[in-house]
Design a protein around this nucleic acid. Structure first.
Length: 269
DNA sequence: CTTACCCCCTGTCCGC
DNA sequence: TGCGGACAGGGGGTAA
């Protein structure tokens, strides 16, 4: 599920519903969820504090609590984080929840249970987030910045885009979609892409993410629910064998860094 | 600095 | 119909 657009949608919805709420207590139902921290530490650090705000950094959701504590949440593959009306009535796949003073709950609902929640002092959260690459939807992400970053790596373009230390937030789907929009072959070594094409890639990244954020925000209108009708239209991802709408060649799949990459052999060179 | 595994989990799909 | 294996939008760790 979650790459930057979905995480942004989840984060916004959570902020709208839970900003200002007081956490009565926190319960970790699956100890591994707070790894490497003990569940007790997260429960203790969250209890009694007020949610000041909720922000996204890369694919992380940061819940800022009163007293300088941050809950850093990562949804990984199947996680979702949302407010439910009654903390006593939770989905089966709840791995951790925060019981709010008004009786509502915030749940980490995660079937595959790969999601993680840690509690950090503000400064430590800051340090960890500083290790992430540039925010692709921020003003600092410019064509020039992408050109600088690309010069530092000879990774295949797709692997580069997925590496959170360069740009944070792109995953398997939107990396492939951005490369398709930019007409760049996913295996091209990043430091060999010409500046003009990197400018095109920059625009493609920003456009695809902005489009997908809008779509994801609508799709997650109801907490914990995904509206199928609002699924973002994917040009190449998961479409092996389909015809490219532009050049009519069949979409191909290849494996890079253990993940599937989809691309159009006609458009992407 | 890379790549190439393995691990963490559950669920689904595909081929035999 | 049943079953084993591959694979799935995440990342961390370790070895080479």
């Amino acid at each position: 599920m979650p790459e930057l657009p979905e995480v942004e949608a989840v984060s916004r919805r959570l902020r709208e519903k839970a900003k200002g709420a007081e956490i009565r207590r926190a319960r970790v139902l699956r100890p591994r969820t707070t790894y490497p921290q003990p569940a007790s530490k997260v429960q203790r650090l969250a209890a009694g504090r007020t949610i000041e705000t909720v922000e996204r950094r890369g694919k992380h959701i940061l819940i800022y609590l009163s007293g300088g504590v941050v809950l850093a949440c990562h949804l990984r593959m199947t996680g979702n984080l949302y407010v439910i009306p009654d903390a006593g009535t939770r989905p089966l796949s709840t791995r951790l929840y925060l019981e709010l003073a008004d009786g509502r709950g915030i749940v980490l609902d995660d079937r595959r249970a790969l999601g993680v929640v840690n509690a950090f002092p503000l400064a430590q959260a800051q340090t960890l987030m500083n290790k992430l690459g540039i925010e692709p939807l921020s003003a600092e992400f410019t064509p020039g910045r992408l050109i600088e970053l690309a010069a530092r790596s000879k990774m295949p373009a797709k692997v580069f885009l997925m590496d959170q230390r360069f740009i944070s937030g792109l995953g398997n789907i939107y990396s492939a979609e951005a490369l398709y929009r930019a007409r760049i072959h996913p295996a091209t070594p990043t430091n060999q892409i010409r500046p003009a094409r990197l400018c095109r890639l920059h625009a493609a990244i920003v456009d695809v993410l902005n489009d997908a954020v809008k779509s994801a925000y609508i799709a997650y209108e109801r907490p914990g629910q995904f509206r199928e009708a609002e699924r973002f239209p994917l040009a190449v991802y998961g479409r092996e064998g389909d015809r490219c709408p532009v050049c009519h060649r069949r979409i191909r799949r290849l494996t890079q860094a253990g993940r599937s990459t989809y691309y159009c052999p006609g458009c992407q060179r």
